[in-house]
Amino acid sequence: MTNQVHIPYGKQHINEEDLQAVATTLQGDFLTQGPQILAFEKAFAAYVGATYAVAVTSATAALHLSAIALGVKENTRVITTPITFAASANCISYCGGTVTFADIDPQTALIDINAVRKILEAAPKGTYSGIIPVDFAGKAVDLEAFRKLADEYGLWIIEDACHAPGGFFTDSKGQRQLCGNGKFAELSVFSFHPVKHIACGEGGMITTNDKNLYDKLMLLRTHGITKDAEVMEENHGGWYYEMIDLGYNYRLTDFQAALGISQLKRADKGLERRRAIAQRYDAAFNGTAVNTDIGKFDEGNAYHLYVIQVPERKHVYDELKRKGIFAQVHYIPVHTLPYYKRKGFSAGDFPLSEAYYTKCLSLPMYPTLSDEEQDFVISSVLNSLPS
């Protein structure tokens, strides 16, 4: 490898089958609201083991619609993690609700269920309405445990599974529970951003086993408009429609859905490669100053990211960048961002999240990363460590 390389932390893979799928759809009768949408929804629901799936324009849109469908409004209080992309919290703010953060488990960087329980115990029952756990970096949250806690306090769960299609945790009966299968969360949300497992350019999906929530979501993603005669107040003819709720234009296009279907066909192969890359990182950093607790191999981890923790993180980041390796930091704790600081949060509120942030670094992780490229990343990380 030379200094002319360009190795990003994540990267889409578009092959000839993808191109043909999009081209065929572009030459067809529908660019939007056509048959590819339903086909993608059915295929994705089957992939994660859910009953229903709703395709939308982005995972942010998916979170927003999920919050609306679950009744988030002014004075609704919801708990999530500071170590996530801001959208996991913003969806509550969009609806006028109030976000509360719970600190992480430093061994996993996932939201700590004990921290959530302390928040709930410290307030009168009914204070909080829901929890948004995040399958950070691809590691599945134990939603069975969160479901038990949520039921105790009458809460709903939105699983932010944007990092984890194909990921799973093992439940108390030894059964694998796929992220997004709807057995423990009312709604689960996925992303089709280019660096994710399935790339549609942009796009998102909501999965659920609840028919009522599914119907709400289908209405909300299309302006709140229906042509269903059974729910309309009047019917003037075949052209007639009614807007029965305040919805949004959050529809995915047919050519994006066609790309998603094509990408989904090789999702398992991509997941296998991601896990192999993680195992190579594990082996290479074993016994070094690189802390791999977050990324350490777990067969249920979908490995959207491989996160290490290193001393003098900025120095390591800069050295990698100088060599053409574009590592990334996931994430700046949400409560420290200016918008949330204006809402009363401040540095020091969630010390474990903040300590994690000072050392975390996401290394290149995508299926087309070659062994040669990975070896160059590994040697570059080790050579950049302070002596």
Rank of each mutant, 00 (worst) to 15 (best):
N235A: 06
S379K: 15
K269G: 08
T98P: 04
T60L: 07
E74H: 11
L217H: 00
E312T: 02
Y241T: 04
S93T: 15
T336C: 13
G300P: 04
A355Y: 06
Y303N: 10
T127Y: 11
I113S: 05
G247H: 02
S66L: 04
T80A: 11
V316E: 02
D18H: 06
S88M: 10
K183N: 09
A50L: 04
F184V: 01
A347D: 13
P194Q: 03
A59G: 10
E17L: 08
A55Y: 00
A87G: 11
I83R: 00
L155C: 02
N181K: 01
P106S: 13
K42E: 15
Q309M: 10
S129K: 15
K125W: 07
P194N: 05
L70Q: 10
H163L: 12
D245E: 13
T2S: 15
V290H: 08
L305G: 05
P311S: 12
F285S: 07
E272P: 09
Y331A: 10
N249C: 12
E17M: 07
L385P: 01
E242N: 04
Q20L: 05
C360M: 10
T84Q: 14
L63F: 09
R275S: 05
L110H: 03
D282C: 13
A55W: 01
S379D: 14
L385I: 02
N383E: 14
M243E: 13
F44G: 01
D298T: 09
A258C: 14
G49T: 03
F326N: 07
V56E: 05
S93F: 14
A289D: 14
F136W: 08
F326I: 07
E319D: 14
F345I: 06
L352W: 02
F168S: 05
A229G: 03
R342I: 09
L337H: 11
N90G: 08
I132E: 02
A62P: 01
K73A: 15
A53S: 14
I158A: 09
F146D: 00
K321Y: 13
K343S: 11
V48C: 11
D171N: 10
S362V: 06
Y240W: 15
T358G: 09
F169R: 00
K139W: 07
A53V: 08
A45G: 04
F101H: 05
A283Q: 15
V54Y: 06
R221Q: 09
